[in-house]
């Protein structure tokens, strides 16, 4: 399957919660949700406002999905790789693969 053709809507609540688990805590140097949001073209002010949220990662994912036609599972994975969060890619890949498989079955 071409992950770039799978919309972010394919990802279920479990994956989104887990993404938050990895990305919500702020890091001194390593990329957190802010770096990911910036890669999704959110502005500084938008990111500042998300910071007041309890779970900024899920908010960012919801808004990205609503506003951008480029919000695909493949794009999310390439952003995570670009900001060097290979821990997330490694830990969540099986879960994401499973979500994509279900999405494809439901589309048929």
């Amino acid at each position: 399957v071409d992950f770039d053709s799978i919309p972010l809507a394919a990802l279920n609540v479990t994956v989104r919660k887990k993404l938050g688990l990895y990305l919500n805590p702020k890091n001194a140097v390593a990329a957190d949700w802010m770096a990911v949001a910036e890669s999704m073209d959110f502005t500084y002010l938008e990111i500042k406002n998300y910071a007041a949220s309890k779970n900024p990662t899920t908010m960012v994912l919801d808004d990205w999905q609503a506003r951008s036609s480029g919000a695909t599972v493949g794009r999310l994975l390439s952003i995570l790789k670009k900001v060097e969060r290979n821990d997330i890619v490694e830990d969540l890949q099986p879960l994401i693969d499973d979500n994509v498989r279900r999405y494809c079955v439901n589309q048929k």
Partner: peptide
């Protein structure tokens, strides 16, 4: 602790 958190985000 902060360093382990940060470096821990790589594998």
């Amino acid at each position: 602790v902060e360093l382990l958190n940060d470096w821990g985000t790589t594998n």
